[in-house]
Amino acid sequence: MDRNQQLKIKKKTTGAVKTLIILAIVMIDIYPLFWMITASLKTASEFVTKPAYALNEGFYFQNYIDAWNEGNMSVFFRNSLINTCVSLVFIVLFSVTISFALVKMDWKWKKVVDQYVAFGIMVPFTTAMIPLFQIFTKIHLINTRACLILIYVATSISFSVFLTSGYMKSIPDEILDAAVIDGCGTHGLLLRIVIPLIKNAIITNLVIQFFFKWNDLMAAMTFVSSKSLKTVQTGLLYFTDEFGTKNWGAIFASVSICVIPMLIMYLFLNKKVIEGMTAGATKG
């Protein structure tokens, strides 16, 4: 073997090792989820007779039916959907109007308000939680959908304004000037010129806020206690308490019900999700 050949072999093996390492990383990310889905399709006896890593023998969909009906997942799902969607409407509405006023309009207190809104990014929700609990108890909103929606909207304003303003700044002032000369009013400017131009920002914001709100646990577990109002996240906590550690199949099915919609959404929207979530770091 001459030297050249030896080098070639060496290069090939290091290449193979590198590929293997990356493959291992990808496996570590995917395998637990894959395992969860296979486990959700196992019968109760399979968990006892076979090791946990074994594949499912058949497709036992009864687990899903149990989780959906007996585990009340259908109710939790509807609650999460209502809370999330209603909050999203307001979050998008406020973030567009506030950032339009802050970036493109002229008024005296602009800078102060801008900093005041940005301050919220720093505030941990835990600090606001205790007084919020007292406030909501006083105004009799504790244990209602309304209080969750109010919290979701209030806590999202800072970040979504930050995200939307970034795009708003990239609209050239000349376009707005031209529209104004053509006789466009303030609301018309926002509706017909600005919103179509920042469509992308709105979608990105919508997508990531959907994930944030859907995944919320802290507010939902603190402010809502009645079973009929629980969201998917608090429901899942409650569900495993209810079913104990015995019914593994149903537990895995309920976790899968929680994860699979996220997975499907993510597969279609991953570019927007990654862009939106990392925006805080890359645009700060």
Binding site: I25, V26, D29, I30, L33, F211, W214, N215, L217, V232, Q233, T234, L236, L237, V255, C258, V259, M262, L263, Y266, L267, N270, V273, I274, M277
Partner: peptide, 13 residues
């Protein structure tokens, strides 16, 4: 895409 996925999962799940 794959590496980022766990980030969007609900923590309870």
């Amino acid at each position: 895409t794959i590496v980022f996925f766990p980030v969007v999962l609900p923590i309870v799940a």
